[in-house]
Design a protein around this nucleic acid. Structure first.
Length: 302
DNA sequence: AAGGGCTCCAACCGCTGTAGG
DNA sequence: GCCTACAGCGGTTGGAGCCCT
């Protein structure tokens, strides 16, 4: 998108009803197309970027406005734990909400409550450098590893998506959603994450063919196509007994840490809280309930 | 009533990724 | 491989409205 500063004299700030009307009328008549040329054709003194944002964040027909439901908030919090500040990806799981709306909601509501509870809104963990979970396992800061595993999950999804017929690679997610059936086909990183975890820890009947994620030898980047034949029991591959220092496959060790970090965090969240620990207005599910529901067809229990 | 501080969110800004020439 | 145009993303900001004193 060309920068709005290119053209001097373009209007900025809140949209007027007249401008809204022009934008809507034009889109209604001509549909969505080139945002750069739209303002001129629609008679608007705005840059295309501004028009696009106005449409996406305010006039998109499938938008659901108003307060976030408890269900939506739960989804946001749990997806944020997986994805971090990837608002657009999170928004893909809440089809009627915009990334901007979710971002605002996070920053003005959820983040505040996390802070109030002494929880780091970035890591979703209590604000201490060293926390021992009820499992006895040590939970340090695993965000770097999390990020790695998460990117792998997303990369896998991207790879999968490439196998799907695609005739509109440059269409926006909204445009794409318009071209699809009623069932949302948004990116499901949670599923991808599940598949990563499943892939990491499932007992293979054919160990020689186990596929794991590994760095591409040439680029150093993680590649899904890296196939590293490994043998033996998965626990043996990860470590010898409980001695973490003897892990035979460092990368798997790292992923095991990721998994255990999730596990530890859930235990931490799920731990019973004292009456005086209750933070007013903070949903109980954050402490007690981790049944995750995206919609009626998909669920994950962590 | 006034005004100072706070909250919220629409909109902007700067940047990245990608397609096409 | 480089350049340009464009779409999209995430961080940030401005200001309207609300609340409190």
């Amino acid at each position: 998108m060309a920068d709005c500063r290119e053209k001097m004299g373009l209007k900025k700030g809140p949209w007027t009803p007249d401008e809204d009307q022009k934008l809507l009328a034009y889109i209604e008549e001509h549909g969505l197309g080139n945002w750069r040329t739209l303002p001129e054709k629609a008679g608007l003194q705005r840059c295309g970027k501004s028009c696009r944002l106005r449409w996406i964040n305010y006039f998109r027909p499938d938008l659901k406005r108003g307060k976030f439901s408890l269900q939506e908030e739960q989804t946001i919090i749990q997806l944020h734990a997986f994805l971090g500040n990837r608002w657009s990806t999170i928004a893909a799981h809440l089809p009627n909400r915009t990334d901007n709306e979710i971002k605002n909601y996070w920053n003005t509501h959820v983040k505040k409550r996390f802070t109030k509870m002494g929880i780091d809104p970035t890591t979703h963990k209590p604000k201490s450098n060293h926390v021992v979970s009820p499992t006895g396992r040590t939970t340090l800061n695993h965000m770097a590893q999390w990020e790695s595993a998460r990117l792998e999950a997303e990369a896998r999804l991207v790879k999968d998506s490439k196998n799907l017929p695609s005739s509109s690679s440059r269409l926006s997610p909204y445009q794409k959603s318009c071209n699809k059936g009623s069932k949302s086909q948004c990116l499901d990183v949670v599923k991808a994450w599940q598949s990563v975890v499943a892939g990491m820890f499932a007992t293979s009947t054919n160990n020689s063919n186990r596929i794991i994620f590994g760095p591409d030898q040439s680029s150093g980047n993680y590649e899904l196509d890296s196939i590293i034949p490994i043998g033996g029991n998965v626990e043996d591959e990860l470590m010898l007994g409980n001695d973490r220092s003897k892990c035979q496959v460092p990368e798997l060790n790292e992923r095991f840490d990721n998994y255990m970090s999730l596990h530890d965090t859930m235990h931490l969240w799920a731990a019973p809280i004292a009456e005086n620990d209750v933070v007013e207005g903070f949903p109980d599910f954050l402490v007690h309930d981790f049944d995750y529901q995206i919609d009626n067809e998909e669920s994950i229990t962590v």
